[in-house]
Design a protein around this nucleic acid. Structure first.
Lengths: 212, 212
DNA sequence: CGTGTTCTTGATGTTGATCAACAAGCGTGG
DNA sequence: CCACGCTTGTTGATCAACATCAAGAACACG
């Protein structure tokens, strides 16, 4: 799933009085919270990109989602974070005390409804991710990620905020396979790669066809 | 994700007056709702097992979740079902009008909270599923499913409600691989398979070690 | 300009998919 | 009750996709 939780009306730009506990900046690669940490805060991404994911003991990593500006992350059913969140590039997040948010939701039905909508949207993204990982080939997965990123930016040309390793860990592949797939797309004229971190989608219909 | 949404306190056994629109039975394999149907109802599983999943145009299928008695399914962010739900074996479901449920949630904060909890628990199961599909081997996946089913039944010996094809479509594998993996477990003494639809976990620690 | 990191490319290996045959259940009808 | 056919599951042989291992090339940064 890419970018699970988007907050718009209630607690976006002018953070609701009382629920925000301030903005914090993180440098590229820094950990925002880790698997096992107390989950007493949620986060609203003001600027930058965040990845949330999990690590197996032997070092295998799976990224659950990339989060972009305007989205919220860090929600948990229990009181412990089950995932780790790290800054992809530099990042600014607004911290929201979970307690304050749940109190607000108890008082304000609109907030509660929004919270529910945001969660169920995250669930649907996760289901898309499951389909991608369970039944799609490497080509289809990479194409899917490029389209997802393009849709998010609203542009056919965009910067890749994340490394090849991040892409691989989101897609359940290796960096080598991601790299090879991108150069294959390049050679087929489906994309341009002026720099390693900038993509242009040249043949969107063909990429979409790859995703079924 | 296995079994996303469990309703206990609010609308389980004695369905809340006004929200339940009756119980319906489906025979094995019958469709309860399909991708694209209007999502104006949610379902509470009274008896049996249901699978929810999606189909790609070329026939590849991915099962998102198996649902068991007591759980609810069929929640959507929008007004269209994005998945198909089918009976695995014979099934009885209680139908709840979505409108009635959301009205109830608007009036009763406990119901709203429960709805939120159930959804976020489903999200976490989906994330476990993502990790499984993205980074685990066939052995690890099959072991994970057996443990999940055993935990759900609360017994080390249980009937498999679903076919090999269903297992494969949940695990992102083929039936042949599922079958081979099960016989490998059998030969290593990790499980017993007295019949094709009945499993006993003989060496739970070893199976857990496979899931790390 | 080095020097370390990230990315790409190539050669080879492994896992799981595919194709094919066979076995085991299971329901139906004789 | 058995015979038959149909579905589901198992097993084997082969193949393909992706991983792994190993160099290089391109950046990024001091």
């Amino acid at each position: 799933m890419l970018s699970p939780l988007r907050f718009e009306p209630a607690f976006s730009q002018p953070a609701l009085p009382g629920v925000s506990a301030g903005v914090i900046r993180y440098a590229a690669g820094e950990e925002i919270f880790a698997e096992g940490d107390a989950a007493d805060q949620v986060y609203e991404l003001v600027e930058g990109t965040v990845r949330t994911g999990r690590l197996l003991r032997d070092g295998r990593r799976q990224i659950d989602a990339f989060h972009f500006a305007g989205e919220a992350f860090g929600f948990e059913a229990g009181d412990i974070h089950r995932t780790t969140a790290e800054a992809v590039g530099d990042v600014a997040v607004r911290i929201v005390r979970r307690r304050a948010l749940s109190d607000l939701a108890a008082r304000d039905g609109d907030v509660a409804r929004k919270l529910y909508q945001v969660t169920i949207a995250g669930l649907q993204r996760s289901q898309d991710h499951v389909l991608m990982l369970g039944r799609r080939s490497a080509c289809e997965r990479v194409a899917g990620l490029l389209l997802l990123l393009a849709d998010r930016k609203g542009e056919a040309a965009f910067d890749l905020p994340m490394s090849r390793q991040d892409m691989a860990d989101y897609l359940g592949l290796t960096i080598e396979t991601v790299s090879r797939t991108l150069t294959a797309f390049l050679q087929e004229g489906l994309i341009a790669l002026p720099t390693v971190r900038h993509v242009e989608l040249l043949d969107r219909p063909a990429l979409e066809a790859l995703c079924e």
